[in-house]
Design a protein around this nucleic acid. Structure first.
Lengths: 126, 126
DNA sequence: TGACAATGATTACATTTGTAAATAGTATGT
DNA sequence: ACATACTATTTACAAATGTAATCATTGTCA
């Protein structure tokens, strides 16, 4: 039910732009990315092509421009990556991860409260 | 204050064995790893050598055997990797990460309670 | 002391990734 | 219809990674 392809770091930066706003042209992707990276147009084209080949995005052409759009949902990608991270670093156990995060990152009691509510809701939904 | 070198996925598997028990010989690392992977001895030797070159581990020889030990602490590695993950996937924001995790993984109210306590303790410590 | 067996070091090779230049295809104005 | 100016596709290349075979060193037993 998954089938999320391997997406490299740089490719992921491109995906984020496409998820954020689509369909979108290569030019617009580039404008967005050059705000935060030093990548050349051609470099970004390479990433776009690799994403196409991997089946992560698709396009429809109108005139001479291609308009790209995602074929996988960000939520699915995030879920897959989170699970991989959890498995790799914490042996798949949620609790040690949370405790480590609590130790190293800033977390307020309000954040915790929100988390609790969300879990209650989730339980109710089922 | 960090200086954690880049450690690849496979190398990390080796690191975990060394963190878990050290000093340790290449043979013992291999016995451990062949339980869960199909890696050949030589493959594992390669990873050990790359870790040596990267300064992630050191060794002391006794007789013909080398005994390897870590030069970086697992806690530091975990912190670095967690931060990278958080930045890459969630733009550095802890809360969205927690909410996504709460949605996708099993988290009990008891876990949350423990988390809350830990945060209180941390606040007190400072 | 000299050969063997074990262990570490070096070399090898395909794939992925970051980075980009060169080349090819095409809609549009003249 | 044709050249032009874009835009997309192909090709390039070095570094990192996964995977391992081969070469070199050295302690040990005969």
């Amino acid at each position: 039910m998954d089938g999320i392809p391997e997406i490299s770091e740089a490719e992921h930066r491109v995906m984020k732009v496409i998820w954020n706003c689509n369909p979108i042209t290569a030019m617009d992707i580039t404008s967005e990315l050059t705000k935060t990276t030093a990548w050349k147009l051609n470099t970004i084209k390479t990433f776009i092509n690799r994403l196409l080949k991997k089946g992560a995005i698709g396009f429809e052409k109108s005139g001479k421009e291609y308009h790209y759009y995602p074929l996988i949902r960000e939520a699915d990608y995030v879920r897959t990556e989170s699970r991989l991270f959890l498995d790799r670093i914490f042996g798949g156990a949620m609790k040690p991860m949370l405790l480590a995060m609590a130790e190293n990152e800033d977390l307020s009691l309000e954040d915790i409260e929100e988390l609790r509510k969300r879990i209650l809701e989730k339980k109710k939904r089922r």
